[in-house]
Design a binder for these strands. Structure first.
Lengths: 193, 193
DNA sequence: TCAGTTTGTGTCAGTGACTGACACAGTGTC
DNA sequence: GACACTGTGTCAGTCACTGACACAAACTGA
């Protein structure tokens, strides 16, 4: 596979979806605009949605990889937070791509759906890595919950950055989201009605 | 629309997917097994996935509705938790359906994807209701984060119930998940590396 | 240098999800 | 008895996605 073609397809897909919408953008048209066949398009991407999500596809696995590299002495929370620095770096390194992906995600439910599914896989991968540290089974509910919390805070951070139009603050926004989560859950007894 | 037909279609879809899998189950076949046309199937459900998810479709809106009914004096956390009692009741009232939906979700990524999308809409609806209480805009990141936290704990609770084969504990499991979340975020300073 | 393999692509035929338009029957209403 | 409303079938069509096959170019080793 030639990475140049892949990038061209992604760019063409984004452009077209921006102009005429996701539904009106056919896979064949994207392919044709790059000088390639529809069949070839589907050799590069499993679905039409993936063409757009491709730029951030590797992010999840990268975070999981970093999580494995964190010293065993760190608490789960600190190791996870440190691993997400990879995501922060990635976003601050190329804010334009991330902003574009987020914009398309907001406007197109189909895209958002696929993105959620992708994130779900990320959480699974993270939970597996975290499980190793804790000596828990690969997909234990506990590590899944912890990774889910982190991912939720990350999403909140991204949203804040997006709305502020400033992705350089991603790290700070992530910490703020975590703090906000802590404060929310802090308030005395939830139980009892 | 006749609700009897809708229920039959859902039942037929679940049975077939259980036996031969999601991909091998065509919409036409589901429809035919109920004595109806494929076209009619798609008048009842927007997508094949929705036929299976239908039993829990109304849950999100119900929770949001209850959230609106909670006294204004309650903190967001308490009001949200109280609103989720609706979900707890629904699950304990019909554990078999929920267990089936969860089992299919686990085995079929396509179903899981749609379910995540559904949940995302629930969070949006909840965040809107919560925003009203707090005087925040409809989809403010803050209320979204809080509702997301609750939904995450709810998912964890359901998973625990499912694995234990006992949905009567849903309420307790939800509280346990919230407590676990609190403990995770509690540990001193996350920031700084 | 040449046979053999690997890689990227086109072509073609096919399946299945989903949609719009139209016709038609049954049921209720005034 | 004219009229609207509801639920359904039929038909034609679009488009995502897949498998099988053929073909050319680039690479590989003797």
């Amino acid at each position: 596979m030639r990475e140049a073609i892949r990038a061209e397809l992604t760019a063409a897909a984004m452009r077209s979806i921006d102009e005429v919408g996701f539904a009106a953008t056919t896979a064949g048209a994207i392919a044709a605009s790059v000088g390639v066949t529809e069949r070839t398009f589907f050799r590069y991407f499993p679905t039409k949605e993936d063409a757009v999500l491709q730029p951030i596809e590797a992010l999840g696995p990268s975070i999981a990889e970093e999580l494995r590299r964190r010293p065993a002495a760190e608490t789960p929370a600190r190791a996870l937070r440190a691993a997400f620095a990879v995501a922060v770096d990635s976003v601050t390194a190329d804010p334009v791509t991330m902003a574009t992906v987020m914009r398309l995600n907001r406007n197109e439910p189909a895209l958002r759906g696929r993105h959620l599914q992708q994130q779900d896989l990320w959480v699974t991968a993270l939970a597996a890595a975290l499980g190793e540290r804790l000596g828990l089974p690969a997909d234990s509910p506990r590590s899944r919950l912890q990774c889910g919390l982190m991912m939720l805070a990350w999403e909140k951070a991204l949203t804040s950055c997006y709305e502020a139009g400033d992705f350089t603050r991603a790290g700070d926004e992530l910490d703020a989201a975590l703090e906000e989560s802590r404060a929310f859950l802090q308030v005395a007894p939830l139980t009892g009605r």
